[in-house]
Amino acid sequence: MNQAADSGGQRPVTAGERGRVTVTAPIETTGSATEVQPEAVLAGVDKGQIEGRSLGQIAWSRFKKDKVAVAGGVIVILLIVLALLSRPIQALFGLDPNTFNQDLIDPNTSIPQGDFGGMSWEHPLGVDPKFGRDIATRILEGSWVSLVVAFGATILSNTIGAVLGVVAGYYGGRVDSIISRLMDTFLAFPLLLFAIAISATLQGGAFGMEGLPLHICVLIFIIGFFNWPYLGRIVRGQTLALREREFVDASRGMGAKGPYILFRELLPNLVGPIIVYSTLLIPTNIIFEASLSFLGVGIQPPQASWGGMLKEAVTYYQVDPQFMIVPGLAIFVTVLAFNLLGDGLRDALDPRSR
């Protein structure tokens, strides 16, 4: 038998073995574990490196790359925390948004004493020229009112719009026609005029409520109940595409009924568009609530609200512009932060929109 020895002094290799060596990767005796064990490559050298990621993890990794959206999200979180803690903060520091400080108002000019609207260490954003109330405290007090109305109206409109939209898109036919015409009817309402009329009618008391709770509930109902068709159309369009997917056919094949498919199969796949639309709807509701309060049919004084503060500032904007700038900036920053967050979530949850 012919044999050949290699230059390294290893055992002789037969002709048959030489053929096998040419197709087999040599195993080195030095090096890392990755190099010395080819079978480890087949099993996965480091299982953590090849572990799959969920859709939420992928969306979060995309969202983190958008620094502008992250900044908007941080501002939104801070605003929510301040709104939730507004009353405890006022109690902790002994603040009262309705405390009159007439001694801070110049009796001759009827404007706050000092520069920039009476700004000082005690009143960092100045005082209002009408009663000398601290503007910073009133901004803090008005924050929770605006956010409660905006979030409440968004939840109401999204609940109605998501349910009716997915029903219309899934069943189609006459059901779709009825719900679609209902959407068109609601969209045809002159919402602002209708809201003014309803709010003015229910100012005294209704449904066993009065005062601030009544005003908040009325605003949530008006804004939320008449805005649901916007989300309803989005959900209906998405459902028309999803109902033809394989997982829906599989559910039907397994005997699943309509309600199960709607709420267990279709709606979970619509969470992304609903979240994105919510972040874009909240700032719209904040502006709407401020508009109604500015017109005098929203939150009523002495309760502080950003729109109400702008209404009071109209009389004094020439002699004390500070009184108008501060609540205007509060609305501007809040709306901008929610819009930036919404744009970032849209790109993260739907990469096709990039």
Rank of each mutant, 00 (worst) to 15 (best):
P97D: 03
I282F: 04
M1V: 00
H215M: 01
Y230C: 02
I331P: 01
K311Q: 14
V218R: 11
C217R: 07
K311F: 13
G307K: 05
L156Y: 07
F63V: 04
M209G: 03
Y171A: 09
E122Q: 14
D6S: 12
D115H: 03
G114I: 02
V167K: 01
N101T: 02
G118Y: 05
K67D: 00
I222W: 14
A4W: 14
G114L: 04
G48Y: 15
S293W: 10
I198W: 14
F207W: 11
K65H: 11
F288T: 12
E246L: 09
I135E: 15
K67N: 07
A162V: 12
A91L: 15
S143W: 07
N285W: 02
V276Y: 11
I155W: 15
E289P: 04
G172L: 01
S110H: 15
W144E: 12
S110M: 10
Y230S: 08
S54M: 06
K311I: 00
V23A: 10
K311M: 07
P88N: 11
W60V: 00
R133F: 05
N2P: 08
D46A: 08
I160S: 07
I286D: 00
R245D: 11
L295F: 13
L182Q: 05
L242Y: 02
E51S: 13
T30M: 13
E51R: 15
T315A: 14
L79E: 03
V297F: 05
L78E: 06
L187E: 06
G161V: 03
I89W: 09
S61H: 08
P124N: 04
L340F: 15
V167H: 02
A313M: 03
L214H: 07
K311Y: 15
N2F: 14
G307W: 07
R264C: 09
I286G: 05
G16F: 13
S293N: 04
D343Q: 12
I331W: 10
G308H: 03
V167C: 06
G204C: 04
G255N: 10
R236K: 15
N2D: 11
V314G: 04
L95V: 01
P283D: 11
S199H: 01
L42I: 12
P26E: 09
R138S: 00
L140Q: 03
L42D: 04
G56L: 13
P190L: 14
V319S: 13
F186Y: 09
G208N: 09
P268C: 09
F263E: 01
I216M: 10
C217T: 12
P213G: 07
V276M: 07
I220G: 02
D184V: 01
G161H: 01
R20Q: 13
V41I: 07
L340S: 05
V21D: 04
T34L: 06
E17I: 06
V166R: 11
L292P: 03
R352H: 07
I50T: 14
R181D: 06
G173Q: 09
A200S: 13
L193I: 13
L147D: 02
